[in-house]
Design a protein around this nucleic acid. Structure first.
Length: 453
DNA sequence: AACTAAGCCAACCGCGACGTC
DNA sequence: AGACGTCGCGGTTGGCTTAGT
C-alpha cells in the first residue's frame, strides 16, 4: 500500500490498472446498453438536457475520435449536434484532451518529470495547464492528480511539500537516489504531539508573472514558519526560499495557452519608472531600482490559507536559488527583527553585520493584519547579503522521496553563532506543512500567533 | 474474509476569459 | 457596450484497486 505512489509503480502495475479501467468502462457500457442506452447504470447518469455523464465507453471514444479526425479540434458543442454523441461539449473536450488526443504519454511520471513538476509548481503554483505545457504528453489533469496525491502523502508524513531548496539553474540539483532512507528521526515525533501550530506559506507569482520574465530573477518566495513543539525551548524557525524566475513557455507547448503570454509580447504593460522613489511606488511593483515587486501571495497546491496579501520587495538579490533560515525566540520577536531591520532600511541605515542580515525575516499572508498595513515596500538592496551566504546548491534528497527522509548535508555559510543551519534544515524537514485540506485551520493557526501586527 | 487506509484516476462543476454579434 | 456562446482552467468528487490489519 505504501509503495503505491507514482514513481514506485511498475509498468506492469500500470498496464494492469489500465486494463482494469478499460474493463470498468466496458462494464459501464454494458450497463448502459442493458438499460436501453439511456444511461443510469452505475455512475452513468444523465444531465438535465439528457446528456450522458460518467465514464466514456469505447464506442463513444470512437465516435469522438472520428469526429475530430474529420472536423478537427474545437467547436466542441457541435460534436453532440453533428455526431450524435450524447455528451456535452465540455465533456468531449475533456475526453479528447486527457485521453484521446495523440502523443499522450501514459504511465507513471519519470523522475525527471517529477522533478520538473516540483520545480514548475514552485514557480507557478497550481497552474496545471501551464505546467502541462512544459511536460510534453502530459495533461494538466495528470499533473494535478499527481500533485494532490503528493500533497496528501507529504502532509500525512509530516514533510514539507518542497525540498529545502529548489533548483538552481547554474547548479542543477543532482538527481538523488529516488528511494533514500530516512537519515534522522524526528526527536519530537515519537514522544509527543506537536501542539504548536506549524505554518508554511508562499509568496509567489507577482501580480503579473510576465513582468518577472523580464525584470527580475526574484520570482518566487517561499517562507515557512516552523515553530517547535511547545515542550521544547521556545524557538521558532523561519525558512525563506527563493526560486528562479519562470522560464518561458516551452517552445513546443500548445499554442492554446494564450493566457500565458510572455512579457515581451504584451505591449500593455506599464513602462518601468526610472526616477521615482520606491515609496512613491508603494502600490506598484517597481522602484527606483527597477526591482520592486508586488508579490501577491498564491498558494501552490492550496497548501495554506486562502488569505492573500501583498508584499513589495526591493532587492538586487542574485538569481541564485537560495534558502535562509532565521531563528528567533518567538513570532513576536521575529516580527520585531523584521521591523527593526526594516526601519534601518527606511532610515537608509546600512545593515552590515551578517547577524543583522540573518535576523531579517520576511513574512506575509497574515489574514488578520497583513504586513502590508505597514506599507512595507521594500526589502534591502543588500538583501543579497542574506542570500550570498546561503548555499546556492545542496544535495536534495527529497525530490522524489516521500518516505520521511531529510535533506542531506550541505555547505552552509551561516555562522554557528547565529544559526545551526543544518539542524534547522533537518527540523524544517521534520515538521509538517499546512496542506490542502487544512485551509481553515491554517488561517486560524496564524490567528493564534501572539503579537503579530 | 471483512474492514480500512491510501493511492490512482476519470470525470464533473463552477468560474472566468475570450470572441463574436 | 453588453449579451451571449464557447472554451479553458482549477477545484473537487467519487469509483476503483491494492495492501495492510
Amino acid at each position: 500500500m505504501l509503495n503505491k505512489s507514482g514513481p514506485q509503480k511498475s509498468a506492469a502495475q500500470i498496464q494492469q490498472q489500465q486494463q482494469q479501467r478499460f474493463a470498468t468502462a466496458e462494464r459501464g457500457r454494458s450497463q448502459q446498453e442493458l438499460s436501453g442506452g439511456g444511461g443510469g447504470g452505475g455512475d452513468v447518469v444523465e444531465g438535465s438536457k439528457g446528456l450522458k455523464k460518467g465514464p466514456w465507453t469505447a464506442v463513444e471514444d470512437q465516435i469522438l475520435m472520428e469526429y475530430v479526425r474529420k472536423h478537427g479540434e474545437g467547436n466542441w458543442n457541435a460534436v453532440q449536434r453533428n455526431s450524435g454523441l450524447n455528451r456535452c461539449g465540455k465533456s468531449c473536450r475533456l475526453r479528447w484532451a486527457n485521453h484521446l488526443r495523440p502523443n499522450l504519454k501514459k504511465g507513471a511520471f519519470s523522475h525527471d518529470e517529477e522533478r520538473l513538476i516540483l520545480e514548475l509548481h514552485a514557480k507557478y503554483g497550481n497552474k496545471w495547464a501551464r505546467m502541462a505545457s512544459q511536460l510534453p504528453g502530459r495533461t494538466d489533469n495528470e499533473i494535478k492528480n499527481y500533485w494532490n496525491t503528493r500533497v496528501k502523502r507529504r502532509q500525512r508524513q509530516g514533510l514539507p511539500l518542497y525540498p529545502m531548496t529548489l533548483n538552481n539553474r547554474n547548479n542543477p540539483i543532482p538527481i538523488p537516489d529516488p528511494y533514500p532512507q530516512p537519515q534522522i528521526q524526528n526527536p519530537f515525533q515519537s514522544t509527543n504531539n506537536c501542539t504548536t501550530p506549524t505554518f508554511s506559506f508562499q509568496i509567489q507569482s507577482p501580480i503579473q508573472a510576465h513582468h518577472m520574465h523580464s525584470l527580475s530573477p526574484l520570482h518566487h518566495l517561499s517562507l515557512s514558519l516552523l515553530p517547535t513543539p511547545s515542550q521544547q525551548p521556545s524557538h521558532h524557525l523561519f525558512l525563506l526560499l527563493l526560486h528562479l524566475p519562470p522560464s518561458r513557455p516551452h517552445p513546443r507547448a500548445p499554442v492554446r495557452y494564450k493566457r500565458y503570454l510572455p512579457a515581451d509580447l504584451n505591449p500593455s504593460l506599464p513602462p518601468l519608472p526610472s526616477s521615482r522613489t520606491q515609496f512613491e511606488y508603494s502600490e506598484s511593483f517597481l522602484s527606483s531600482t527597477g526591482s520592486v515587486y508586488s508579490v501577491k501571495s498564491e498558494l501552490p497546491s492550496s497548501q495554506v490559507s486562502q488569505t492573500q496579501s501583498e508584499v513589495t520587495i526591493d532587492t538586487k538579490v542574485s538569481s541564485t536559488a537560495a534558502a535562509a533560515a532565521v531563528s528567533a525566540s518567538s513570532p513576536t520577536a521575529v516580527m520585531g527583527c523584521w521591523r527593526t531591520y526594516y526601519k534601518k532600511l527606511s532610515d537608509n541605515e546600512q545593515v552590515k553585520s551578517s547577524s543583522e542580515v540573518e535576523n531579517f525575516v520576511s513574512f506575509a499572508s497574515l489574514e488578520a493584519k497583513p504586513i502590508q498595513d505597514d506599507h512595507i515596500s521594500s526589502l534591502p538592496e543588500d538583501l543579497s547579503k542574506l542570500f550570498s551566504f546561503i548555499p546556492s546548491t545542496e544535495p536534495i534528497s527529497d525530490w522524489y522521496s516521500d518516505s520521511g527522509e531529510l535533506s542531506n548535508g550541505h555547505s552552509s555559510g551561516l555562522t554557528d553563532a547565529c544559526l545551526d543551519f543544518d539542524m534547522q534544515q533537518h527540523m524544517a524537514a521534520l515538521f509538517p506543512v499546512t496542506a490542502t485540506a487544512e485551509h481553515g485551520k491554517a488561517s486560524s493557526s496564524w490567528d493564534n500567533l501572539p503579537g503579530i501586527c
